[in-house]
Amino acid sequence: MQFFGGSEISPSPPAPTASGNNGHMLYVFNRNGICLLYREWNRPLHTLNAQQDHKLMFGLLFSLKSLTAKMDPTSSEKGNLGVPQLPGQGCSFHSFRTNTYKLSFMETPSGIKIILVTHPRTGDLRESLKYIYNLYVEYVVKNPLYTPGAPIRSELFNTTLDQYVRGIA
């Protein structure tokens, strides 16, 4: 697990990996599984209500993490399947792809999970997720009126985020 350097926003965000508006949605969860932020740009299909959808997404990530920790072919000390893992412990994953979308995932050392769902042919978005985490630190964590663990209600953060995601995916 790499720890991210200085908290200042890097002057030049990572180069775009694709052109056009391919971002579908973005989730931010804290380590207790509370959805801090949900943004939606292009989602024609809703199978569940919002709360159920967030729960299912968090559950999917949690289970996929225990799956990858157990399947890791490079380590022989893996423990049992489903043992709770701290952020950065065990083998995690950074993306998966289906025929209709690609999900990129990042977990920070404090257990914040950032999930970006894009078009299936978008490239590696790890740097972009780090940049989004930087935005979160700058606009949300450094806001003195923000209570940790509460859903994010910041117009400025939302606009910056929208603008950035429109540029990358």
């Binding site: 289970s63 380590s75 792809r97």
Partner: peptide, 30 residues
Amino acid sequence: SLWHSMHAISQQLSPVSGCSGIELLQADTF
């Protein structure tokens, strides 16, 4: 069987219709 369920859940979470489940999972070491 865990993979079987994750495959099914990923179809539920698709933003557009016609999803047939995970094709490639990129983990840190595999």
